[in-house]
């Protein structure tokens, strides 16, 4: 198979890294080589976060180049727009519709565009927006947004759904397993 490139974007604190880990472990469990990479360092909440997951028979670089992502998963609409250029033509975008104000907007220094979703629709013909927070809360915990987002792309991955489900079970803390599995299923049904 050709290398499958995934970009995951969001805001610090949303669980982008855990979602990346689930995808990477699922690829390994499927017998694929993987490279996963995100830039972290500033521990604070609120900064823009971008993570790359690459899977295939043999993966060299840990970095996804613009124009080459098969899949963009964004935990926030503005971040979807910010990293949309990473998608290859026809690539799939799934994004969480719940917005989070950047500090620049919170401080009144910038305005959150009110047409983010229209701009996404205009530039990407293969986009899906979901209310991941509502689905996560329905599953039992608003923090399970990351598992909802993984659920939304299950059909787009070159992986068996059962493998991903098994990995989610393994990486979840004991009391979180049921919530995470419901969040995953809720995302898949969205």
């Amino acid at each position: 198979m050709p290398i499958f490139n995934i970009v995951i974007a969001g805001v610090g604190g949303q669980g982008v890294l855990m979602a990346s880990r689930v995808l990477a472990e699922s690829a390994l469990a499927s017998g694929l080589d993987i490279k996963q990479n995100e830039v972290h360092g500033m521990a604070q909440r609120g900064g823009s976060v971008i993570s790359f997951v690459r899977m295939g028979e043999k993966v060299a670089s840990p970095v996804v180049m613009p124009g080459s992502a098969d899949l963009l998963i964004s935990f926030e609409p503005l971040e979807a727009l910010r990293y949309l250029h990473y998608l290859k033509p026809g690539g799939r975008l799934v994004y969480n519709k719940i917005s989070i104000n950047p500090s620049t907007v919170a401080a009144g220094l910038a305005v959150y565009p009110d047409d983010v979703e229209d701009q996404i629709a205009a530039s990407c013909g293969n986009a899906l927006g979901v209310d991941a927070l509502a689905i996560a809360r329905e599953a039992g915990n608003g923090k399970a947004v990351n598992m909802v987002m993984v659920g939304t792309v299950l059909k787009n991955l070159p992986l068996e759904e059962e493998v991903v489900t098994e990995v989610v079970k393994q990486v979840s803390k004991e009391k979180g397993v049921e919530v995470n599995l419901r969040a995953l299923a809720g995302g898949a049904a969205a």
Binding site: M42, S48, H85, P102, V105, P113
Partner: peptide
């Protein structure tokens, strides 16, 4: 290099910031 759309310009930046209640 792979053809990529230009990044959308003029979006509000999202720099790291003091945590809520820091």
């Amino acid at each position: 290099v792979a053809e990529a759309a230009a990044p959308v310009e003029g979006l509000p930046q999202r720099p790291p910031v003091f945590c809520p209640s820091c």
